[in-house]
């Protein structure tokens, strides 16, 4: 039994302050963390491992710093970690990321269950799970709150039309776990030390994954930014209502609008 957990590193929202009055965002602390939903997906995998036995493999696509997210996954209890890192991924959008994660999952075959965070705390598109399932040709369940082993299948409690529904999905499958579904464990201190001092994070490039130029082409390409022209500001008439009304009348008359 092998479970692949796709995790994403995000900027810690706690380190960001939004100043509404100045219409500015201040990054007080540029700290990157394992996304909360992804952490829940990892916790679900670790609980599955404890209940029914499994090898838990964490995979992340991202810049060099994403190595830290994978080491945190190892510290929490993952058995192995793979970092999909390549300059070719610099422009990767969600479609490219899903194709790369699908290729990594295929390289890790046999895989019985793929877990992802339902929605990241940064872009929040919620597309990685569905796209990954499509690319792998596997059934998918999104918005999962509980995932349990059930005799060759996974029993999943998911959000459904404003309620919760219990569904069964045959394995292998892709399940997207919602943030807050479970309380992720604290990593053990000794595992934190070992995650950096002893254990390895394997690195796979686009070539290692056999990705073609077509696979690496994003859906949208950034070409620059442009804004609509600023609207012309009209003239404000201020003062006592009676005087202001008189002045407004004069203006309208002089412009021949009345």
């Amino acid at each position: 039994m092998r479970i692949v957990v796709a995790v994403k590193q995000i900027l810690n929202p706690a380190g960001v302050v939004v100043n509404l009055r100045r219409e500015m965002i201040f990054v007080n602390r540029e700290e990157y963390i394992l996304g909360p939903a992804d952490k829940c997906a990892l916790e679900v995998a670790l609980q599955w491992k404890e209940a029914a036995g499994a090898e838990v493999v964490a995979v992340s696509l991202g810049p060099a710093r994403a190595d830290d997210a994978l080491r945190e996954a190892l510290a929490m209890g993952a058995d192995a970690a793979y970092h999909l890192h390549d300059p070719a991924f610099d422009q990767a959008d969600i479609a490219v990321a899903a194709r790369a994660l699908a290729a990594a999952t295929r390289r890790l075959e046999p895989v019985d269950l793929v877990l992802v965070g339902d929605r990241s705390d940064d872009t929040g598109a919620g597309q990685v799970g569905p796209r990954l399932a499509e690319a792998l040709g596997l059934p998918q369940v999104t918005g999962a709150y509980q995932v349990r082993p059930a005799d060759g299948a996974a029993e999943v409690v998911r959000r459904w039309q404003g309620r919760f529904a219990r569904v069964w999905v045959p394995l292998p499958a892709v399940v997207a776990v919602a943030a807050g579904a479970v309380k992720p464990r604290y990593p053990h201190g000794a595992r934190i030390m070992n995650a950096y001092r002893q254990w390895q994070v394997a690195r796979w490039s686009a070539a290692d994954l056999g990705l073609t130029e077509e696979d690496l082409r994003p859906l949208a390409v950034y070409r620059g930014q442009a804004f609509p022209p600023a609207p012309e500001v009209g003239e404000m008439v201020r003062g006592e209502p009676a005087e202001a009304a008189r002045e407004l009348w004069n203006i309208l008359k002089s412009q021949k609008l009345v």
Binding site: D68, A75, G189, I192
Partner: peptide, 9 residues
């Protein structure tokens, strides 16, 4: 980095 993660934990 192990100490940074340890502090966060």
């Amino acid at each position: 980095k192990e100490y940074e993660l340890f502090r966060r934990m």
